[in-house]
Structure formats: C-alpha cells, structure tokens
Amino acid sequence: MIEARHRRFSFVRVLAIATNTFTELTRLKVFHVLLIFALLLIGSSVFMARFSFQQEFQILKDVALGAMSIFTSLLAVVATARLIPQDIEDRTIYTILAKPVARFEYLIGKLAGVLLLLAIGTLAMGAMFLIVLYACEQTVLHETARQTMSPEQLNDALRAVRASALNADIVPCIALIYIKACLLGALTLFVSTFATTSVFTTVVMVFIYFIGHLQATAREYWLQQSGAGWITRTFLALVALIFPDLQAFNLVDGIIAGAAIPLAFFVKTAALGIFYGAIYTLLAGVVFYGKEL
C-alpha cells in the first residue's frame, strides 16, 4: 500500500478551512446586518444633503468612504474575534486539530476566510459607492449641459463637475481601507489566541483601534521630546513599538480634499499593511502553538 506523504504545510488544507470559515461567516446575521446597513448608508448618502454639486460630492464621498472604513474595520474585528472561541465552544477545533492539520494551517485558514469575507464586503460597498457617485456625476453633468452659457463657460463648468466627482485615486483609497481591515483582522486573531472570550477580544480591539490612530502622535512625541520624564518616555515608547500606526492607512481625508496618491506611496503603504498583517499572524501562530486545547 502506498501511503501519501503528509506535507507539513498544505494549501489544500488551508483552502478547505478558509472555505468553511467563509461559509460559516456568511451565514452570520451580524454580517448581513452590517453589510446591508453599510450599503444603505452609502446608497442613501446621496439624499442626505442638498447643496451645491461640490458640497454634495464631498459629503457623498466622506460618508461613503467613512462608512466603508468603519464597517470593514468592524467586520474584521467582530468576525475574527469569534473564530477561535466559537470553535472551542462548538468543539470543532478538537475535531480539526485531531486530524493531520497543523495549528498554523488552521490559523491561516481561519484568517483567509475572514479576509475573503472582507474582500467581498469591500467590493460590494465599493461597487455601490462608485455606482452612486457615477449616477450623481451624470445627473449633474446633464443639468450643467442644459444650462445656457458660452462654450468656454460650459467647458469650465463641466471640468469643475468632473474634477469634484469620480477620480482614479478613489480606487487605491478603497484598497487601503481593505488592507487596514485585513491588518485589524490579523491583529484580532493574535489577541484572540490568548483571550478567553470573544467579548474580551472585541473590547481590546476597540482600544487598540483608538490607540493605533494615536500611535503616530505618541511616536513623534517620544522621539522628539527629550524633556519628558522617563516614565512618560517609556510609556510612549511602548505605545510606539507595540501598536500599529493605523493613521498611515487613513488617506480618505486627503483624497476627498483632492490630493493624489503616487503609486510608490501606495505600494509602500500597502506593503507596510501586509508586513503588519504577516507579523501579527506569525505572533498568533507562536501563541496558538503553546495554547492548551
């Protein structure tokens, strides 16, 4: 009899766990509620205010991108926080790990399931946002074109409408929102490996979320202020070293204000996000290997 050689790491096993996790997560009511709420918010942002077209576009973009950012982050934390505690409670984890599945494969599979869910959520929200923005742009363009003005004025007006509506920088901005959510998912996975309940993980992640957005301030203060006492400096150093700089992924404000994202800058930011994600997954693996199950 020929025995199939057992591989230490198998993409097929990871894929099986990821698919299963994804199916489980899509059946969760919280996912449906969050996604529907986000889509409604993005879709209805067009009716929120009746201002000039520039103000309408700005508010639409702010609300839509803000909604995408908060819902993907929330989904990443809520979906990941329950993965391990739920599997322990359902005793599924024992069945899986009793088979020749490495713990790291299990973790990666679980995380991949969440990342797939986040990708679909982001795509749905992104598509909705772009459709709404495009529809608004077309309406304003038609209204502008109907107005009586000289060809020169009409050109200026149409150019102004196009400049304040859809622009290519929205796409990398959405990509960075997704990367930020992935990083939060990996970090949540790390926290959940030593947490006992999903509520604890979620609460810790909420704090990490706020601290992460202030990390840059703490870091600059630590590195620039030599006059502060050693307790303050130690505290700031720990904040700077332990927490990720979540503000680095927050380009929404700049994009809406009209700033452009250079490709090199986007790649660098995305690479930092992937680097964070990889390290937190690795740390989750180290802790999970030592966890008594």
Binding site: G66, I70, H213
Partner: peptide, 8 residues
C-alpha cells in the same frame, strides 16, 4: 476626529 473620521 482622532480615529480617522475627521472628514465625516
């Protein structure tokens, strides 16, 4: 505003 929602 500090949590990345300045624009909103």
């Amino acid at each position: 505003a500090l949590s990345g929602f300045r624009s909103i």
